[in-house]
Design a binder for these strands. Structure first.
Lengths: 198, 198, 198, 198
DNA sequence: GATGAATGAGTATTCATTCAT
DNA sequence: GATGAATGAATACTCATTCAT
């Protein structure tokens, strides 16, 4: 990695943290360069505009999550577990948990939505692949896979992103997943055990 | 209606149109008063701030849609039709159709999200009532009604609000609705006929 | 007192409290009428402008303090005590003590200065009278009485208005007062006992 | 001096003149940048806010006057002349005389007071030093020097800042200064000759 | 005496972006 | 690669005052 690339990456990471903490709109270019210790001009040497930087920041995030999802999809664990694993890969892990909360503050809707959309495009196909695999194995049985996957992702996002869901929510989600994919009742029941924190 | 009230209503309507057309953030107070032909001071005589005005604008919209939904829920049409009707009441009608498209431009996410949330709180209970009625009549059969209704609304919003959906989307939506509510296959099939425009 | 007069007085008192608490500039006409429970128009029925109201408020305060000073000057207590008494009459009493602190907040300089000036014009002559009386009695001995009184008031104001003064301040003040008025050393020493709180 | 520094200084000087002529509150940022021929953004590149600029303007003034006072205090002229010289250093000189008048217009109280306070803190110690020197030489004789100096400055400010004082004022001021510092009568009498303009 | 709707001039501040060096 | 001085459009909000009713 060249020197310039490293600096760009550093800027992206600083920006990511700021965007996600304070919101894209509330983070000024000034804020970013101040923390990075560089001059205004330097910033615009690396990025065309603030908005374009946002796209790169999001691209970086997405790529990480997509990579994790692909790993899971390609692994040897049971299909239902893969489904859940792919979902989980979309959720910020560890220390970023606090960040996730911030992602839902009113000021972050713009970023949140952009992420949502691109996540749908990237994770969607991966998940569809898993479902197809499940159909081949006889675990699932359904048509219109992309459409069903989209619904799954939509509801999953709505439910789990907020970080606030009840047991009833989970129960209904399990029920719906099974029915949507045409799985035997109980196929996805193990989800309930995975989700403790709520 | 008193003189002041009429003017306030007029301002709300102008703002509504602007917010929805150009986005909340891209509409300046200046824009609004210019069209209304009033002075800055007059604007602030009626509204504490631009943001508070947004809340009132949204409240106005919601109330209209909720009223329509209540009418439908209270009417004598078949339960499945009521479900669809309530959904339909959430969609802007007639001339506002062009507006609806705008509601999804990136600049409108803030407003869009505020509306979404409040719609969920207002329409949700009405829809739940209809589902309960359906259960009483033996048409539906399910538990955790509020959770299921929420999912229905989430997916419905995602699908239909954008104004872009395919036949496959509708097919899956019908399938999912029936399964989510525990209805006999075909119960909601008539939806397909209602939706022609896409 | 007619009805209108009573209302005007009430407004003056509300304004006085607000001006002195929050500062003249930070008190809007709105604030005043809100507390008084009257309409904008009514306010302007009683006062030409906000500034003119300030003059009336100050006039009211001054008149009260001047009256107290005149009483003391006309009483039968010893001359040195009269001097001190007149000084004391300028200081807000009792519950207004908290107010006095506020009178020195940056926001109140305008009002504070206006008061200072008018106090000088009103209390000055009264104090001069007392000094002349003291000269007649042989307690004091000096010329240019108004000038000396002015200095006394200036320093007294600077020292005591702030509410922050040390023993050394008082000692020097006593010394200076005696010398300025040509009194025997110790004549004003009793002041020290009067001032305990600081 | 770097390019940026020069421009900042230029802005400070323009602002100083405006503040002092028209008053701080009556001078808009617009007024300043218009005369400087720069853009809004440039102004805020150099100053965080208008208020912070005021602080810098005052700091600049104070530093000049303090420097003059220090020179006088460190020179070889007789002590009484030093006292007067230090006082004189506080008064704007030459062309700024017209400015001085303006400093007392009602609109300038805020600035005036800020200056007064900081002047007390800066000039006070210098003057105290001179008094101590005088005591060492046997010209003065007193305790509580800082307190006495403060009174001197307070009265001096009240008297001379306004630019309006009579012979009687000066006579009493001389008398008081001598007594306050414990000097022999006549020690400061030369002041009378220095002040001709009134 | 009293109302309250209407005015509109006035102002500080933000911030992404550019470009000569 | 890097700097940092300069830009200037954009904007929400305040408030004393007026006047028809």
């Amino acid at each position: 990695m060249k020197k310039g690339e490293r600096r760009k990456l550093e800027l992206l990471q600083i920006a990511y943290r700021k965007f996600v903490t304070a919101g894209y709109e509330n983070t000024s270019v000034e804020d970013i360069i101040e923390e990075a210790g560089i001059a205004k001009g330097t910033y615009y040497y690396y990025f065309e505009s603030k908005e374009q930087m946002l796209e790169e920041v999001i691209g970086m995030m997405i790529e990480q999550e997509a990579e994790a999802a692909r790993q899971i999809a390609g692994s040897l664990i049971p299909i239902p577990q893969k489904i859940v694993g792919v979902f989980a890969s979309m959720r910020p892990s560890g220390e970023e948990n606090s960040i996730q909360g911030a992602l839902h503050k009113a000021e972050n809707i713009l970023m949140h939505n952009k992420i949502r959309k691109r996540l749908m495009d990237t994770i969607g196909p991966i998940l569809s692949g898993v479902v197809e695999e499940g159909i081949a194995e006889g675990i699932f049985s359904c048509d219109n896979i992309p459409q069903r996957v989209r619904m799954l992702l939509t509801i999953g996002g709505d439910l789990f992103d907020e970080g606030q869901f009840t047991e009833a929510d989970v129960a209904v989600f399990i029920d719906m997943t099974e029915k949507l994919l045409g799985a035997k009742p109980g196929t996805m029941a193990f989800i309930r055990d995975l989700i403790g924190q709520g």
